[in-house]
Nucleic acid binder design. Structure first.
Lengths: 195, 195
DNA sequence: CCCAGCATGTAACGGGTTACATGATTAG
DNA sequence: CTAATCATGTAACCCGTTACATGCTGGG
């Protein structure tokens, strides 16, 4: 289970509250791992009990107080151990592919709208990634852009480079999906309506 | 939840036992949806109770008897209804990406072996898909290859075309992953060992 | 004789999802 | 006044995973 470790990585990049983590999971971390606030609170509580994270009450004005979590020494050790262990390849889950194969037993043309909708969503996600890349990693060429967020406890250069390569993975994924959905649309249109 | 519908699609393509379904989920259907035999038996029992599938005892010689499941009329209706409903985009889960970002707080070079391992697995999966494509959908050009499996109750041409376009999606995915993992490897090597 | 394959299951555990709950402040 | 944002939580349910169990046949 990687949610624990995803949270550790996020807290190492920048300490924060459960609420803040939930928002990060809707954004940068969410590019490759999703979690709701319920899951996050549950895991934070468990990790606190195990001593992987430290908590600090932060009073705020104009807002509710919050608990700021940060990674403890033993949490860092746990992460390092996990990094050593091989993981098995993720099992794929493409509900849309189930639908596409299922369309042979319904009306292929009826799926066109749905596939177009997915294509649009991937297009938006791609635009979002590209905007983030431009903002955080400079226009095109060399480095030199200021860090958008305070770097965590690691080497700032490694942190940035690795965040960037993961983002490039997201970009490649969205491009691949868009191209494939075009292929799917052409196929559905060629098949036409139910006999 | 799509496991129900993935099973319905597989049974429409060809009726079979829980055991046979489990093997298909390790192969063709498993390209985009995974399931273990325990899940499959559980769902088959539920769908039988709901009347989505019919069961037929098939005595065999030299092997244990089996229960052959096939989709009932109401199962087909349920599938058609599900095809109409929009689904939300799959939430991404890339454990390897968590590790890559986590490597900034450990030793980036130590991840190289693991990433190479994943690259090899994707290469094998790609080879497997390409072999399947050559076998089932002809060398390169036009159609004309004999169906490798008896077609289900739909239009055979639509069934084949849609299976092929899903397979092309798998192929595109593996190619994208291999290219991205090369990018990751180059990045990790550039960063070198822990300071 | 033992292992691999065929075939079907039960049990337990943990994670993910959805719904519900509370309470404060600020902006429209 | 109402809605949105910040902030933390409980409860229930289902799904996915892992381990265990049974029994038969054929091949090395």
């Amino acid at each position: 289970m990687a949610l624990d470790h995803a949270i550790l990585v996020s807290l190492l990049e920048k300490p924060g509250s459960g609420y803040e983590l939930a928002r990060r999971f809707d954004r940068s971390i969410g590019y490759f791992w999703t979690a709701t606030h319920q899951q996050i609170y549950r895991v934070l509580k468990r990790m606190e009990a195990e001593g992987w994270v430290d908590v600090r009450d932060v009073p705020q004005q104009g807002r509710p107080d919050k608990k700021e979590y940060s990674v403890s020494a033993s949490g860092l050790t746990a992460l390092a151990e996990w990094l050593q262990k091989p993981i098995q390849p993720e099992s794929v889950r493409h509900e849309l592919a189930v639908k596409i194969r299922g369309a042979a037993f319904g009306d292929p043309a009826a799926l066109v709208g749905e596939v177009e909708r997915h294509r649009r969503m991937h297009q938006e996600q791609l635009a979002h990634y590209l905007a983030g890349e431009r903002r955080d990693f400079g226009g095109s060429g060399a480095a030199g852009a200021p860090e958008p967020e305070a770097p965590g406890s690691g080497r700032p250069d490694a942190e940035r480079e690795l965040q960037h390569v993961v983002l490039r993975g997201g970009i490649a994924y969205e491009r691949m999906m868009i191209a494939w959905l075009d292929d799917v649309l052409a196929t559905l249109r060629r098949l036409g309506p139910r006999r």
